[in-house]
Amino acid sequence: MALVQAHCARREGRLKEHGQILLAHGGGGRMSRSLIEAEIAPRFGKGPLKGFPDAASLPDPDGPLVFTTDSFVVQPLEFPGGDIGKLAVHGTVNDICVCGGKPLWLSVGLILEEGLNISLLRRILDSLAAAADECGVTVVTGDTKVVARGQCDGLYINTSGIGRALPGFSLGPEMIRPGDAVLASGPLGDHGMAVLCAREAVLSGTGPMSDTGPVHRLVAAAADMAGAVRFMRDPTRGGVAAVVNEAVHGTPCGVALDEQNIPVSPATRSAAELLGLDILHVASEGRILLFCAPEACDPILTAWKAIPEGRNACRMGTVTADAGSVLLNTLAGGRRLVDMPQGELLPRIC
């Protein structure tokens, strides 16, 4: 029936672009941004949602609260290095962390498809619980719905999280200055490539492993230099390219990245080569990109390298005075633009 409708709709010429939601609107790139700017911002974009931070900062007499929400529709539900349960914790916890918060409480909303295997559900819930323990967050409320077969793809999860702002951080893209260092806490793109390889049955058994993991210890390790940290983000959908472009969008700053210093694991690099993807567009789920004053670069890298999730941290770029321009100094000695990703590069990776 849907096919017949499509055929009819096509004939009536009703399929004009942007008259309907396309998968590309969820890609985390320019089309996602334009959807949010056109439809969400005018309705809700005032108050704490202004500027669309990863988490909202809410006033509280005992110090600001940090609040965020995220939905997870990854397919497959289990992938090398993780599963949707773990991811649902890390995604929300990390959004709180990169806004300078300490995550405390979590809600979990489950939407289950009729026919979902109960042992699979158990594995995912166990994994979710273990991830919450590791991050020091408590699941304090939740909801479970079941929909008929075919109305969702196995299992969707929504998590919301509340944390408390850590003292000393004053973060935002407007704090970034030319000369600032751009750091990555570890190899980039592992999550996106792991999910894609699992889905496409590419490099089975030898492919990349998802980096899904919490960043709370990385943020805590940088807290000694909190006053010199300008901005943090976890490079999820849209990857480094989206984060860095959004960070300098509308500011008088640009960024120059050095291809030589971009950390990429060998398996992820092989997979990206094989599938023809730009690693800068591919998501990570356990990494931070951190902008800091130049004098804070070495102390933060030293502190990061002392903990397992930061052992491959490195400086991969510098903030320039070239407004809005994000460039890559290539290995071949040239330069090229690092553009926002377009279209549906990797749907349903988180």
């Binding site: 096919l3 709709a9 399929l15 309907q20």
Partner: peptide, 9 residues
């Protein structure tokens, strides 16, 4: 892509 959004497989 637009055909798919309208239901084409």
């Amino acid at each position: 892509a637009t055909a798919r959004a309208a239901g084409a497989d």
